[in-house]
Amino acid sequence: MPKMKTISGAKKRFKLTGTGKIKRKHAFKSHILTKKSTKQKRNLTYWGTVDKADMSNVKAMLNI
């Protein structure tokens, strides 16, 4: 049986916290920023957590 490979796009996008949650970055923060308000851009800066519904898919991509 070959090794299970981690999906390389997932390992660049997600990080595991100490309590086992998975951190993710917010979308819509890379370009076309002039029409977005300062408040919106500031709130997109911080890390979010992966929703419970998506947790199993992300864990499968990361081989956790």
Rank of each mutant, 00 (worst) to 15 (best):
residue 2 P to G: 12
residue 3 K to P: 07
residue 3 K to A: 08
residue 3 K to T: 06
residue 3 K to R: 13
residue 3 K to E: 05
residue 4 M to F: 12
residue 4 M to E: 11
residue 4 M to V: 12
residue 4 M to T: 11
residue 4 M to A: 13
residue 5 K to Y: 11
residue 5 K to E: 14
residue 6 T to H: 09
residue 6 T to G: 00
residue 6 T to M: 10
residue 6 T to I: 14
residue 7 I to T: 08
residue 7 I to R: 01
residue 7 I to G: 00
residue 7 I to E: 09
residue 8 S to M: 06
residue 8 S to E: 08
residue 8 S to G: 04
residue 8 S to P: 10
residue 9 G to P: 01
residue 9 G to M: 03
residue 9 G to Q: 08
residue 9 G to L: 09
residue 10 A to W: 00
residue 11 K to F: 10
residue 11 K to V: 11
residue 11 K to M: 09
residue 11 K to I: 04
residue 11 K to Q: 15
residue 12 K to V: 14
residue 12 K to S: 14
residue 13 R to N: 13
residue 14 F to M: 03
residue 15 K to H: 04
residue 15 K to D: 15
residue 15 K to V: 04
residue 16 L to G: 04
residue 16 L to C: 06
residue 17 T to V: 05
residue 17 T to P: 10
residue 17 T to L: 12
residue 18 G to C: 02
residue 18 G to R: 00
residue 18 G to Y: 01
residue 18 G to D: 13
residue 18 G to M: 01
residue 18 G to S: 14
residue 18 G to Q: 04
residue 19 T to R: 13
residue 19 T to C: 02
residue 19 T to S: 15
residue 19 T to H: 07
residue 20 G to C: 10
residue 20 G to K: 07
residue 21 K to Q: 14
residue 21 K to E: 15
residue 21 K to G: 06
residue 22 I to C: 10
residue 22 I to A: 10
residue 22 I to F: 03
residue 23 K to R: 02
residue 23 K to C: 08
residue 24 R to N: 01
residue 24 R to Y: 02
residue 25 K to H: 12
residue 25 K to C: 01
residue 25 K to N: 09
residue 26 H to P: 00
residue 27 A to P: 02
residue 27 A to T: 09
residue 28 F to Q: 02
residue 28 F to G: 00
residue 28 F to T: 00
residue 29 K to E: 02
residue 30 S to L: 03
residue 30 S to A: 11
residue 31 H to P: 02
residue 31 H to R: 08
residue 32 I to G: 02
residue 32 I to H: 04
residue 32 I to M: 03
residue 33 L to V: 08
residue 34 T to K: 12
residue 35 K to S: 07
residue 35 K to G: 07
residue 35 K to F: 07
residue 35 K to L: 11
residue 36 K to G: 06
residue 36 K to C: 10
residue 37 S to T: 15
residue 37 S to Q: 04
residue 37 S to I: 03
residue 38 T to M: 05
residue 38 T to V: 11
residue 38 T to Q: 10
residue 39 K to Q: 13
residue 39 K to S: 09
residue 39 K to L: 09
residue 39 K to E: 13
residue 40 Q to V: 08
residue 40 Q to W: 08
residue 41 K to I: 12
residue 42 R to E: 14
residue 42 R to S: 15
residue 42 R to T: 15
residue 42 R to M: 14
residue 42 R to W: 05
residue 44 L to I: 03
residue 44 L to V: 00
residue 45 T to F: 07
residue 45 T to G: 00
residue 46 Y to G: 15
residue 48 G to M: 04
residue 49 T to N: 08
residue 49 T to A: 04
residue 51 D to L: 07
residue 51 D to M: 00
residue 51 D to W: 06
residue 51 D to P: 03
residue 52 K to E: 13
residue 52 K to R: 06
residue 52 K to S: 07
residue 53 A to T: 08
residue 53 A to F: 05
residue 55 M to D: 15
residue 56 S to F: 00
residue 56 S to W: 02
residue 56 S to V: 02
residue 56 S to H: 10
residue 57 N to C: 09
residue 57 N to L: 15
residue 58 V to C: 06
residue 59 K to S: 02
residue 60 A to K: 10
residue 60 A to F: 06
residue 61 M to W: 14
residue 61 M to D: 14
residue 61 M to P: 08
residue 63 N to I: 11
residue 64 I to M: 14
residue 64 I to D: 09
residue 64 I to G: 06
residue 64 I to S: 03
residue 64 I to P: 02
